[in-house]
Design a binder for these strands. Sequence first.
RNA 1: GGAGGAAUGGCAGAGUGGUCGAAUGCGGCAGUCUUGAAAACUGUUGAGGGUCACACCUCCGGGGGUUCGAAUCCCUCUUCCUCCGCCA
Length: 423
Amino acid sequence: MLQLQLVREHQNEIIDSLKKRNIEATPLVEKLLQLDEERRALQTKLDATLAESNKLSKEIGGLFKSGKPQEANALKEKTGTLKEESKQLGDDLNTAAKALQDLLYQIPNIPHASVPAGSTDADNEEIFREGDIPDLVAGALPHWELAKKYDIIDFELGVKITGAGFPVYKGKGARLQRALIAYFLDKNTAAGYTEMQVPHLVNEASGIGTGQLPDKEGQMYHVGEDDLYLIPTGEVPVTNLLRGDIVDQKDFPIRYTAYTPCFRREAGSYGAHVRGLNRLHQFDKVEIVRVEHPDTSYQALDGMVDHVKGILRELKLPFRILRLCGGDLGFTAALTYDFEVFSTAQDRWLEISSVSNFETYQANRLKLRFKDEQGKSQLAHTLNGSALALPRVLAGILENYQTEDGIEIPEVLRSYCGFDKID
RNA sequence: GGAGGAAUGGCAGAGUGGUCGAAUGCGGCAGUCUUGAAAACUGUUGAGGGUCACACCUCCGGGGGUUCGAAUCCCUCUUCCUCCGCCA
């Protein structure tokens, strides 16, 4: 959520920036500022009314004490009208504040200056590429064929017990999953991230804090009876650990990592490009989250990008990094880098990590602040990224490491797996 | 799931209808003393709105009510604790 004061002071810059998202925000912003003025006018009026009635109450108390009940009762009459007035003003204020809030929820984050204009993923800007695309044997298979051939992932079995998009990992496939999780967590903790285990269901306040709610309910599984949501990403519970906190500046950087399963309804996405592990309702991910001082958050973002690079290098997977264009940028992000691994057998790039700076957008909803040198509270910056999402990394490994007599396990994972080949 | 108790500032903990945004202690910050530190002493120390700055307003778990006036009384929800039941 944008800060109102910022909108007031930089109305035109904000409208300009939002054009990168292909949003004509002028009417929205104008309405917002108008509501804001209304709200403040109401607040001022209400405050004055309350001030007067507070004053009268004190006088009445004094009169009763000094034994002048008639005079006190005369004053009581007056407070009656004030009470009605303040009740009405209070209701109006709530209505205005609610309308303001609703509108504020509809405005996405302002893209960072470096975000390229554009409308689709075709407009994303490739900023880095590394790794050799392997020459595969003739008849190389996509991962869903490999999964069947070596009996390591069973999609049909998942359909039987739950539905499409809930795969069952078997034998060496299951072990490889566990190995990847352990390996990622080890890499992240070695880089200074504190490992956390967090709930996989969250309440409404958490969903609002990181921006999944309101409006994006449809993407999450909702447990109606208890009004809880299955997390679509570890970002939600991990970032919300600090909701409502005022942290000490000395605590920066705050760095967390967590493994969680992720649950996504993915309503309406079907077709050939979602085969196999490419798009699932339940998948595993290791997330990294940072809370930073505004002055250093972009350095932190670069650090996260380098960290993910390092992991992909060790795994020896060919990858590229994209700077997302305005049209492809998530609602709450100011700047996002996507990592994609090239899947040779599918002959396409697979997104395996997304690293973003949300600046104060989430922090404003979370009320996540810190004390600056002057002792004043300021909103912190929040960032997060995948390090990494498992299914497509697995797909990339299976497809790029296949040989005629089995799938090689990347060097760095062998000690975690306890085997060096799937055959 | 059943019965009872509780929820106050960073923490502990007073406060049962008026002058209480709230005693006191600890912690934090600043200072005095000291070569320096500790101790001791002095001062200071919640958040939000609003204002050029004040004034002023709101907040004692959340919501609603009673009252001229609520941290304090009533209703309700949530959470925590104790006991019972169940249980990995």
